[in-house]
């Protein structure tokens, strides 16, 4: 048990965390009855993926990926004058996640707008009640 912990969990703890958070989100998407709670779950779910990506860009001892004009003073630049990639965090996942965050926010916005409309139409945000009222609607296509 301890060996497993040391070999599989500790070195890859970012994966464990993201999976656990993601499962929490997915659980509430599936199990919760309230539409808003579902959305909260969905956001948690998406955020977990953001964490995964961001954690991919991490390097121990690396700095932020901004071109620094005083780099030479802080020994970020190697002898040949090139930037040493080991000392700079990978910026790509962050950039990707900026996009993903925007997408997630947009999704959430649309979803909340839909919730608002559903509430206007049905007077409730509980899924089972909404479905019941829909059944009662029959033939209003």
């Amino acid at each position: 048990m301890e060996a497993f912990f040391k070999e599989a969990v500790v070195p890859h703890f970012n994966f464990w965390i993201y999976v656990i958070i993601m499962m929490i989100g997915l659980w509430s998407v599936i199990a919760k009855n309230n539409l808003i709670k579902k959305l909260i779950g969905l956001s948690i779910f998406q955020t977990a993926i953001l964490l995964l990506y961001v954690s991919l860009g991490v390097k121990e001892g690396a700095s932020i990926p901004i071109i620094d004009h005083h780099a030479a003073e802080r020994s970020l630049v190697g002898d040949a004058g090139a930037i040493n990639p080991d000392l700079i965090a990978n910026p790509v996942p962050h950039v990707l996640m900026l996009t993903a965050i925007v997408v997630g926010v947009a999704t959430l916005g649309v979803a909340l707008a839909l919730c608002q409309m559903i509430y206007k139409d049905f007077g409730t945000l509980e899924e089972d009640e909404v479905l019941q009222k829909i059944k009662a609607l029959h033939d209003d296509v």
Binding site: V29, L35, K38, L42, T107, V110, A111, L114, C115, M117, I118, D121, F122, V130, L131, I134, L137, D140, V141
Partner: peptide, 14 residues
Amino acid sequence: GSKRCKVAAFHYLI
């Protein structure tokens, strides 16, 4: 305009 399409859209969104 229909009431159902919003719920359908919500489920699709999830």
